[in-house]
Nucleic acid binder design. Sequence first.
DNA 1: TACTTACTGTGAAGCAACTCACAAAGACAT
DNA 2: ATGTCTTTGTGAGTTGCTTCACAGTAAGTA
Lengths: 213, 213
Amino acid sequence: MKLTKNIPARTIERMVLYKRLLSDLLSKGQKTLFSHQLAALAHNTPAQVRRDIMTIGHEGSPHKGYDIASLITRITAILDGSKDRSIALVGVGNLGRAILSYFTYRHPGLTIVAAFDTDDSKVDRVISGCRCYHIREFETKVRELDINVGIITVPATQAQNVTDMMVAAGIRGILNFAPVPLKVPDTVCADRIDIASSLEKLAYFADHLKQHE
Amino acid sequence: MKLTKNIPARTIERMVLYKRLLSDLLSKGQKTLFSHQLAALAHNTPAQVRRDIMTIGHEGSPHKGYDIASLITRITAILDGSKDRSIALVGVGNLGRAILSYFTYRHPGLTIVAAFDTDDSKVDRVISGCRCYHIREFETKVRELDINVGIITVPATQAQNVTDMMVAAGIRGILNFAPVPLKVPDTVCADRIDIASSLEKLAYFADHLKQHE
DNA sequence: TACTTACTGTGAAGCAACTCACAAAGACAT
DNA sequence: ATGTCTTTGTGAGTTGCTTCACAGTAAGTA
């Protein structure tokens, strides 16, 4: 695979979606599709789809469209989805446990292999198939299990501390559920999922979207 | 408050964050701040902060900066955060329950007032302070409790059905945890939170971000 | 009073993502 | 063959958010 330079984040997000949609179609026996069909499934435009596929260096043929199997292969290669990802979760509270149970065995290629907490009553328990360790073992386990993505589900006040610890341990991607922005060096990628913020934003648009045509 | 026309979604997201950061400062007794201080807390630039504040029609003074209390008031007015929001959740599975427990009593102004499921064993139970109803009562309860935001935590196969039901019941904002994009009329605002996708994206950037200065 | 300093408000420039619109090309019909 | 139809690939244009850079301004200083 040629080294495609700098694919924009938005495109990567859509690739993840395309991959899932295409895999569905493939498992139903469909072999090819056109840009407008994928666009309908992804709720965007044919032009967007074609541009995206062009961006990752793949091509289709004007009369058959895109070959689903080879497109999946290409996207997978881009996303590096071939190799299994080991993920660590820090903060075994309500949300942490929910993510563990929600996640386990459901997402091939993405596995939460270790959870961490400061609470001794949680240490060594196995929650939804995932063992809990004391947070002081974090760096050791990260190295041992070759983890490079971390999930943060600790209270806001501790999120930055945990982040710094993750960065020090060599984590390169952080998914943060705490409602604070994290400071990370630019060799590390951090994303925030904040349910309360999302709801507030939604509440705003629920009121301000046009009420009529 | 004057009708500010069309504040971009990105700005609204930052407003939600600013509001939280400013409230923290206010409760610590701070009265005013400068754009560069808020920028540091929000991890963006002073110019961005000033532009945002300008966009919502507020202003500061060159020597004292912005008045925190009045800025919060303004943001709250914009976000309509004064009135309490009633929220419905559909799909009382692992994730649904986690969100209920994670959310309850923690977010003033945002309350999940009713949960819905098809499973009779869940109906009438109270989970984390929130009562479950059978989904056939959805529209009735939505009207009764004046709900206009909904959370979807059902399996992907049912997400669109639930969405259509929500739209029919008059819901205007939908937060979707199922890994499929939803089709909604443009009078309704839908947002997707997909943990698996986020992790895949993160995994990609964990590998592709620059390794060194 | 005049000078310095530090900040805001904002027009204009810069960027990045999205869309348009059309040339090129294969399939099929006649 | 020749023409028609449909769809791809893509340069160019557009849109919308972000950043720059500087005039305007008020407080502090002497």
